[in-house]
Design a protein around this nucleic acid. Structure first.
Lengths: 331, 331
DNA sequence: TTGTAAGCGTTATCAC
DNA sequence: GTGATAACGCTTACAA
């Protein structure tokens, strides 16, 4: 075991194997030609010395970097974690490294983080959503790397977009409630300035209501990230303001769960007295005493698909992976 | 807007500013001395050209890399996402980049990922837990970078460990149930081979029971990752086998939530007929109709603390951030 | 205060 | 099939 600071270099391996540096490089990358005998000699030296190739040097010498940057708004929301899982699993197969950052839903921070990751010359940058600052766009354009925008397709993508239409999801949700005969419908949501996708869902939702001659009976928008407690408090407020509401659309399943818990706590019969519908179809909401109605989104699939498109060097395009309304027992 | 492929280089900035390359380098890193006038000239050129320094080249030229590798078992568990948040937030301040990978609880995969990530010569590698393959240890030792092991301190750390004692947490949980007067206690857990920390908790739990002259009335171990549905199914099995059980310890809050939902569904009074206690004190479990008793773990704090120790180049040490038993209404 | 030049550890382009 | 050697784009002495 060597406790020396300096890691082994290609040159040392070449020396130990009694071959040239380029030969070692060829063998290690299995590229170009070399005899089986040299290969064995090189590998023996590699094993003996415990050589780990320096990709920093490799990246600088070759043209591209096997690095993919992934910038997400948050990690406390399982949705982004799922997307990230899909991405990293697909990248791992091709030996690409994920470089990663969290914006906390702040566009300016996103811009700064994009600049930071661009310094690593990634072959691609993955972002969530289609809304970015002009600065971010400019940086990305100048960098000339692939850009993948995930989870949303309602807008103008920079390069590749993989996701689904939140506006359609909102419409589908409204259509479902309308079909079920609910007419006095309210909305309980979280901070929409930061989460533009939830705003798009609400837009579609209201559009569909209007089309059916209905309007939103009440709306409660919490000035906070989505959470169970925000959903709980939000529903309580709506019910005290508009006691006649018969269905509530929550901005997502965390919020819906809070609403559902509120109903359980104070004994409001669901869905007879009040229907509840959320968004994302989180695992938890499939296992509550009554499964909560929601929209199933294919999050891992979105991550995986995006990574694949990148790896196969697909042309600019927008991929709609769709969504699925899952009725549950609450609406 | 230039659509040329080749990104701007330091040399081009130097030319544009009419200064030498090293001057640009000094100005950009705010290191060494230069006049205010040159600084202005350089910055003007940087802005004009939209120069983004190439950290790959920078890292190769200087000794260290401002890269920190973070390898977690999973992302679907919010616990690791929380730790990751803490780490990235702390790193961002110091302009360090996180490079990241997911093991899916597979030690061999962890080893492969450590090798992959070491190729980027990170200044540190962060891992979850203290159990790693001999190969992983060897790689890490040879690399000579800092190693931070998170979330567990029951064992021999390689370098720095930040976490708490799962064994103690298990004991504390048992002590709480015993104090509350429960005597017919069962355990419902998930896949322990993969999650060694849950095994340690159970060990401590049983130790404490035995010390009080009690034994585990029943134990149900699902051969699957933790989930709400596994908790639900697990509790159902336990109750059909051992109907007289009066309290159940779940391997974590996801599982406990499933158990709690089962009780709500079939009308088992909690905690009068059955007490429930989990682990992690997830936000959701604080907002169920009855808050679920659990152990609060300081996950974000663990990530943050680890990053800080790394940044201040602290010596090898073990930091116990502790945990807190939160009673709730279910136990 | 500033510029020149020698690396950093690879890959890639040549000859041989 | 193999080995010099020139990049790659920066940082960092060392000179000026």
């Amino acid at each position: 075991m060597d406790l020396k600071n300096a890691p082994i270099t290609l040159a040392e391996v070449a020396d130990a194997a009694g071959v040239g540096e380029s030969t070692v490089s060829r063998v290690l990358r299995n590229h170009g030609s070399f005899s089986e005998k040299t290969r064995a000699r090189v590998m023996a030296a590699v094993d003996k010395l415990g050589y780990v190739p320096n990709k920093i040097a490799g990246a600088l010498a070759s043209t591209g970097t096997p690095l993919v940057a992934i910038i997400v708004p948050s990690l406390s929301n399982i949705v982004f974690a799922d997307v990230l899982s899909g991405v990293t699993r697909a990248l791992e197969v091709r030996q690409k490294q994920a470089v990663f950052a969290v914006t906390e839903y702040d566009p300016m921070r996103e811009e700064a983080l994009v600049a930071a990751v661009l310094a690593w010359r990634p072959e691609a940058v993955m972002l969530v959503g289609l809304e970015h600052t002009e600065g971010t766009r400019k940086l990305l354009r100048a960098a000339g790397c692939r850009v993948l925008e995930l989870l949303d397709i309602d807008g103008e993508p920079i390069d590749i977009a993989v996701g689904f239409s939140h506006r359609s999801a909102g419409r589908a949700t409204a259509a479902h409630l309308i079909e079920k005969g609910y007419t006095r419908i309210a909305y309980v949501g979280h901070d929409m300035e930061r989460d533009t996708r939830s705003a798009k869902r609400l837009e579609g939702f209201v559009e569909q209501l209007n089309q059916a001659g209905l309007t939103l009976r009440d709306r409660e928008i919490r000035n906070a990230p989505s959470s169970v407690s925000a959903g709980k408090a939000g529903l309580a407020n709506v019910l005290s303001r508009s006691p006649d509401v018969d269905a509530v659309y929550f901005s997502n399943d965390d919020m819906a769960l809070g609403g559902y818990f509120h109903c359980l706590s104070v004994g409001i019969p669901v869905p007879d007295r009040l229907a509840i519908i959320g968004f994302n179809a989180l695992d938890i909401c499939r296992h509550t005493p009554q499964p909560i109605a929601s929209i199933l989104t294919r999050r891992v699939e979105i991550g995986r698909r995006a990574a694949e498109l990148l790896l196969e060097d697909a042309p600019a395009q927008t991929v709609d992976v769709g969504f699925l309304l899952v009725p549950g027992e609450t609406a």
